[in-house]
């Protein structure tokens, strides 16, 4: 079934038929291919540049203040003295100009990126902030009291964890820096409907996000209260 063979690792200038018999490549093809690949590389390089301009509030953060400080020092070293506010405004203006240029350059190929939903913006694994959220789901019983049904990483009375720990659902309910995600309310509808359908003892479901602040090593994690609180009653969800 498997055929072993040892041949040189690379060759150039010829293409090979499936049978392994070499045939001369048509001469224009390597040049045309190189041109096409160069074009694709150039487009992807432009696509890899930042897609958002610098937001002014970002300069308030310590790490960005440090970066601006380094930049000022570098400019001072070559004899350019510039005040911090002016430098920050210059950076904002430059970033807006670059984003406008980027959009213009990518406009002809925008349908390709849209229909394949591909891009080169990689904010991967940026977790690690001191504040984070914890999903809470509570059910209202016949006495009107709220019972804790699910608390991420701790409580799971109804066996919801396999769903709620799945990455795609987490992407929907876990808030980002701008707040609750666009599909969060749809998620609340879905999870409430699912729980109420299987548990007749509850007549309403409350979903909320507890904001946590993780302490220094040896310090406990503190709760900073609940946000994005949504309640769904049985009457609301039953058509």
């Amino acid at each position: 079934m498997f055929a072993a063979a040892s041949r040189p690792e690379y060759s150039t200038g010829v293409t090979h038929a499936p049978s392994g018999v070499a045939r001369p490549a048509p001469r224009p093809w390597p040049a045309l291919r190189a041109a096409l690949l160069t074009f694709v590389l150039a487009v992807q390089c432009v696509a890899a540049t930042p897609a958002q301009p610098i937001a002014p509030e970002r300069f308030a953060r310590a790490e960005n203040q440090r970066l601006v400080g380094w930049l000022r020092a570098a400019l001072a070293a070559i004899g350019i003295s510039i005040e911090r506010p002016r430098l920050e405004q210059t950076l904002i203006d430059a970033s807006e100009d670059l984003i406008a240029l980027r959009s213009q350059l990518l406009e002809p190929v925008a349908p390709f990126f849209r229909y394949t939903d591909t891009r080169q913006q990689w904010g991967l694994f940026l977790l690690g902030s001191r504040q984070c959220f914890r999903l809470h789901i509570q059910g209202r019983n016949r006495d009107g009291g709220w019972e804790l049904l699910y608390r991420a990483g701790a409580e799971d009375r109804l066996g919801l964890a396999p769903w709620l720990r799945y990455r795609r659902l987490r992407g929907i309910f876990n808030p980002n820096q701008r707040g609750a995600r666009a599909q969060y309310r749809g998620f609340v509808d879905w999870v409430s409907r699912r729980i109420l359908a299987e548990n007749i003892e509850y007549d309403a479901i409350r979903v909320s996000m507890e904001r946590l602040e993780i302490g220094e090593p040896g310090e406990p994690t503190r709760s900073l209260g609940f946000e994005h609180v949504e309640v769904r009653t049985r009457a609301e969800l039953v058509p």
Partner: peptide
């Protein structure tokens, strides 16, 4: 990865913090 926990400003505490994020 410019936020403080990924840098010396935050004592490179990012992975310590991630391991405590319930989600």
């Amino acid at each position: 990865k410019q936020t403080a926990p990924w840098t010396a400003l935050g004592g490179y505490s990012a992975l310590f913090l991630v391991l405590q994020q319930p989600h």
